[in-house]
Amino acid sequence: RQDLNFGQVVADILCEFLEVAIHLILYVREVYPSGIFQKRKKYNVPVQMSCHPELNQYIQDTLHCVKPLIEKNEAEKVVVVIMDKEHHPVERFVFEISQPPLLSISSETLLSHLEQLLRAVILKISVCDAVLDNNPPGCTFTVLVYTREAATRNMEKVQVIKDFPWIVADEQEVLMQEPRLIPLKTMTSDIVKMQLYVEERAHKS
């Protein structure tokens, strides 16, 4: 148990999950034409994954840079922000992540239980359009990561390797006037706790 770096296990699992979640959010919220998405099966549920190489590489590079922070339990939130043409957020999908201190682990059930939990989150994302208003045309997206100042050093090396630099987010991309808060899913497992909710702007168009 000591040999297994649980931070790395959690980071692998979460980054794989976040990749699926980001693709699905972009599909469900129609940020891109549905024609670039392909039906796939992840966590035993049908999902939609983009097959556009440039977009896929962007998402992979983003998560590759976030991974070192998750490994060290320094990523407090990962936020998928959908913005209108003026780059003002209309929706923020907030993944709050925390890794509890390891108390008791039974590896047999650990991963299968975690898979069930992540499956439930994916299912909630796939039907979230039922509780969200339509977005205006011409939306795009970005990904924010909330961390501690000292932790940003942990991202520096991977940014250079991937040639994918990060900057401090603009206030306009972070703040949202009178957001409506829509909880989607909370999950608790032995090695990670996660809460997913959406902040939706009151007047989108």
Partner: peptide, 27 residues
């Protein structure tokens, strides 16, 4: 910054809808 958190984002933006549409034929 919110509550001491350091909020970071990628410098580069993702491809937008038009850029995706323009490359569909190539793909």
């Amino acid at each position: 910054k919110s509550g001491g958190a350091h909020i970071l984002k990628p410098l580069m933006s993702p491809p937008n809808r038009e850029e995706i549409l323009n490359t569909l034929l190539d793909l």
